[in-house]
Nucleic acid binder design. Sequence first.
DNA 1: ACGCAGGCCTGGGCGC
DNA 2: TGCGCCCAGGCCTGCG
Length: 270
Amino acid sequence: MPELPEVETTLRGVSPHLVGRRIREVIVRESRLRWPIPDTIHELEGSLITAGNRRGKYLLFTSAKGTLLLHLGMSGSLRVTDPATPWRKHDHLALTTDRDMQVRLHDPRRFGAALFIHGDPLLHPLLAELGPEPLSEAFTAAHLKAACRGRIAPIKSLIMDSHIVVGVGNIYACEALFMAGISPMKAAGKVSTPRLLKLVQAIRQVLAASIEMGGTTLRDFLNEKGEPGYFKQTLRVYDRESQPCPTCTTPIQRQTQNNRSTFHCPKCQR
DNA sequence: ACGCAGGCCTGGGCGC
DNA sequence: TGCGCCCAGGCCTGCG
């Protein structure tokens, strides 16, 4: 579900309720996520959360004891709620704060994760090898060009590879490639440098615009208040099979790449 | 090293 | 109404 804009939206929504707050209680109702929730997560109890950050699609909440790492997987979301609110099915984890509020992790498919990391989280194997943040200055055309050199894999696979650039999932990969006029199937190594520059700009633009609108709610993404994001209405190719291309009216095509749906305009994207 | 398919899960929508 | 199939914002693992 969530790509970078949805994770960023979640971070912004949840941070005011966690950062500067002390965790009173950690409640684990279902520990079987992508990896088991470790017992060490209870070390958060009594701890002050001093910072909330995002690295790629990972959320990081810092305490003196260690860092809480959350990943929302395909179907995860965080909700800020009163502790008295009835639990929903698939509410797996909750943090109760000293303000008597709860942040609950809801994740029907359980592809998400909640880990507790001692020491520098950026050295954790999940984070250590990640590529640059797409909205940072480190994500440049030169970087993308170097990553694409000699690669015969489709360009879409490369921009969805978190070792090359983080945060770009299926929706925004399709959208950015449309904006840049590049076919998702084109071999990465064969995309010209000017077009790679356009792609970098398109990725930045589409992610920033989506964050502005609170992310994309396709089916089930909701922010910390349970509200949807509004970027879906802005999508130009994703989930629009057979609908007219907004530029040239050619029907948008859907096909499968790496077991994922790809949407593109066969005329505008080469 | 690289490219790809499979697997992890649940739930919604569809055709029969 | 029910069943089986396909599909879904991610990403790790293991194969050739």
